[in-house]
């Protein structure tokens, strides 16, 4: 049976977040191919529902990548994104699901290294936690 690859979903703002990803893609370092990016105009557009839906549809972990908070293209979009991520983490904790499955990150256009770090840290979490399923195992 082939080894299961973690499912990582990243909501990425099309300003500094996407620039950061583009730079990372052009660099010599490779990032894990299991990450799937969803482009959003701003992390302020990401709703808690989008994150939960991604998890419900099978993502192991979800991250949101936006501009640095004090340098957000839309001024406060990154702050809105962070607040929603925190709310979803609270909901997950209430339901007994590991809140670290969801994280918010901020980066500027030039921080390609940060995107590599984000992907590798989220991959570590995804591999450690595996898919959301009953403790004793069971099907996905």
């Amino acid at each position: 049976m082939p080894e299961r690859r973690p499912k990582i979903i990243g909501f990425c703002c099309e300003k500094h977040g996407l620039d950061c990803v583009t730079l990372a893609a052009r660099s010599e370092r490779q990032y894990d191919a299991s990450v799937r990016l969803i482009r959003v105009p701003c992390t302020g557009r990401v709703d808690g529902m989008h994150i939960l839906q991604a998890l419900e549809d099978g993502a192991d972990v979800v991250f949101v990548l936006g501009c640095l908070e004090k340098n957000c293209y839309y001024d406060t979009g990154s702050i809105e994104g962070r607040k929603r991520v925190e709310y979803v983490k609270g909901m997950l904790a209430e339901t007994g699901i590991e809140p670290e499955r969801v994280e918010m990150f901020n980066a500027s256009s030039s921080m390609a290294w940060k995107f590599h770090d984000i992907v590798s840290s989220m991959k570590d979490v995804a591999e450690r936690l595996g898919p959301i399923r009953p403790k004793g195992g069971g099907s996905e």
């Binding site: 529902m49 998890l55 339901t95 007994g96 699901i97």
Partner: peptide, 19 residues
């Protein structure tokens, strides 16, 4: 609408976790 959808989604995840 948002809150209902989020609650349904969270409860479905909880059910999946609890089997």
């Amino acid at each position: 609408e948002k809150e209902v959808n989020m609650l349904v989604s969270a409860m479905r995840l909880k059910n999946r976790k609890d089997g």
